[in-house]
């Protein structure tokens, strides 16, 4: 039980993380507040659980989930706001962003100058540098400073949706075999790990949506529709089967496993 502050890169991440937290706690014995940063101020897009939070006060397990609006702001916002977070009694700050970003593309190009590595292949060397450097936080000079961590969805959070084909089949009214076929046919990687099969998992998700006569555009309604079909057991199974290593790492950090 702890008070944790999460800073996530965007709307998709915020919707997913809030849902993951609430369902894993089975909606009991927790409080949650979701906010969105625009520039340096919070706008009026606020979610709270239960409805009477903050009047009811923080539960022993309390989560703050902040959408910072950009992958390249997650760590910067953590550094800028951590003192205030520690002042409010949080014990841990977790950042969540996609691995795929302009910075990744730039690092990929730098790293592969003159080489023949296709941009459709995940560059493990580049990923490992981001994982190492991204998690390097200078400890804050604060009497109540907790720990800071930066998690990455590799390569995008949509990988975690692809790792739950049953959920996608229910959300889109497709046969799960159709969903699996599309996923399998769109990987030309040789890595064993599921996370590294797709540079742009959102593109694969779009193809799955295409099978249902739609297109995936990271819209709020689409993400909410997907997560509404995820049960608590689905999150648990995704963790226990270990299909997605980046999800497992995030799950363990979030729930202190």
């Amino acid at each position: 039980m702890a008070h944790k502050a999460l800073f996530v890169e965007g709307q998709t991440e915020r919707i997913f993380v809030e849902d993951l937290i609430l369902k894993t706690h089975q909606y009991t014995n927790l409080t949650l507040e979701g906010l969105r940063l625009v520039g340096n101020t919070y706008n009026n897009e606020r979610t709270s659980y239960p409805d009477d939070y903050p009047t009811c006060g923080k539960a022993a397990s309390h989560y703050l989930v902040v959408d910072v609006g950009n992958d390249e702001r997650v760590k910067s916002v953590i550094l800028a706001r951590q003192e205030g977070i520690w002042d409010e009694g949080y014990q841990q700050i977790i950042g969540l962003r996609d691995m795929y970003s302009e910075a990744y593309e730039k690092a990929f190009d730098q790293s592969n100058l003159g080489k023949k590595l296709s941009k459709r292949t995940v560059d493990l060397g580049v990923v490992s540098k981001f994982l190492k450097e991204g998690n390097s936080f200078t400890p804050a000079d604060h009497p109540s400073a907790g720990t800071c961590h930066l998690s990455f969805a590799i390569m995008e959070l949509e990988t975690w949706f692809l790792a739950m084909p049953d959920v996608l089949s229910k959300a889109l009214g497709l046969d799960v075999n159709e969903v699996n076929d599309i996923i399998q046919s769109n990987t030309d990687q040789t890595f064993d790990e599921f996370d590294y099969q797709f540079v742009h998992p959102a593109d694969i998700l779009d193809k799955i949506y295409g099978k249902a006569g739609k297109s995936y555009g990271k819209k709020e309604s689409q993400v909410k529709s997907i997560v509404s079909h995820i049960r608590q057991e689905d999150y648990e199974n995704l963790y226990l089967t270990g299909v997605s290593a980046s999800f497992c790492a995030f799950y363990e950090l979030l729930f202190d496993l």
């Binding site: 390249e72 760590k75 910067s76 550094l79 950042g95 910075a103 690092a107 730098q110 540098k129 190492k132």
Partner: peptide, 10 residues
């Protein structure tokens, strides 16, 4: 610096 996850301002 690209790998640190920080913004240009940082």
């Amino acid at each position: 610096f690209v790998y640190t996850g920080l913004s240009n301002f940082d």
